[in-house]
């Protein structure tokens, strides 16, 4: 299939998701409120900590807010575009409904990942972007068009990392059938992405900053916006996102080979 055909399939999925959302309007508002509430909790935490101190690991209040906003932005993008697709993949592998995706003429990973869009998650990307914008404004930052585009490119790398981590998590279903609650491990990693890299010491630094992409994912884009673009950092993030994406795709295909359908 050509790229054009994939785009058409994706657009059809988008249309289907929007129609569905308009059918269940109350659900849309309720789930938007849920995500908004959790985001507010994180912003409040920053607010409370900085009532008692001026800097955390060298980050001022609004720098920290910008970091938290960036982390939320990446997470909302994952929620909006991929979360329920990958989440349901786990369930479908268990029930055998996954056959349906394999029977389609496109790339199975593409088909699995893009079936649905969650407008509530996407609506909250604007709130997260608002937090980033407000923090940048309070810091007196004027990144210009190039700065903003570079920041967005780094956020996109972050999205690739989050996607890969979550795909790796749900792909375990191919081996261990009973994986309800496994998505908890993804959230655990995300929790670390709201912390400044400089706060990590010793083993935590080696493990969470260098081995797992938990911290770089948000720190590199936020750092670029605050202190200006540094090619070395950007290359680091780009390399990490490429490596984790390759690993996730590899594991997914390995799992695919094991998949033997289920039920009758």
């Amino acid at each position: 299939m050509s790229l054009r055909q994939y785009l058409r399939i994706w657009l059809a999925c988008v249309r289907y998701s929007l129609v569905r959302t308009m059918m269940f309007r109350f659900d849309f508002f309720l789930w938007s409120a849920v995500e908004l509430a959790w985001m507010s909790v994180n912003v409040l935490l920053v607010e409370v900590i900085y009532r008692h101190t001026d800097n955390v690991a060298g980050w001022s209040k609004y720098e920290m807010m910008l970091l938290v906003g960036t982390s939320m932005l990446i997470q909302r993008l994952l929620m909006g575009f991929f979360w329920s697709n990958l989440f349901e993949m786990g369930r479908n592998v268990r029930t055998g409904y996954f056959d349906f995706y394999l029977a389609q003429p496109g790339n199975p990973l593409f088909m699995v990942s893009t079936r649905k869009l969650d407008p509530d998650g996407l609506a909250n990307t604007f709130v997260a972007a608002g937090v980033v914008y407000y923090s940048a404004h309070r810091l007196g930052l004027h990144p210009g068009v190039t700065g903003v585009l570079l920041y967005l490119a780094l956020v996109a790398c972050g999205l690739v990392i989050h996607y890969s981590l979550f795909l790796l998590t749900t792909s375990t279903t191919f081996w261990i059938i009973k994986t309800e609650g496994i998505e908890g491990s993804y959230f655990t990693v995300v929790d670390f992405s709201r912390l400044p890299r400089e706060a990590f010491r010793g083993f935590a630094s080696v493990f969470l900053v260098y081995l797992l992409p938990a911290v770089v994912v948000s720190n590199v884009p936020a750092h670029a916006l605050i202190h200006g673009f540094q090619p070395a950092y950007a290359l680091w993030l780009f390399g990490v996102s490429l490596a984790w994406f390759a690993l996730a795709v590899f594991v997914f295909h390995l799992g695919l080979k094991r998949y033997a359908s289920a039920s009758s």
Partner: peptide, 16 residues
């Protein structure tokens, strides 16, 4: 998993 959350708390408040 809660221990990981505790690690987040220790790292954040340790820095604060």
């Amino acid at each position: 998993f809660s221990l990981a959350r505790l690690a987040v708390v220790f790292i954040l408040w340790g820095a604060a």
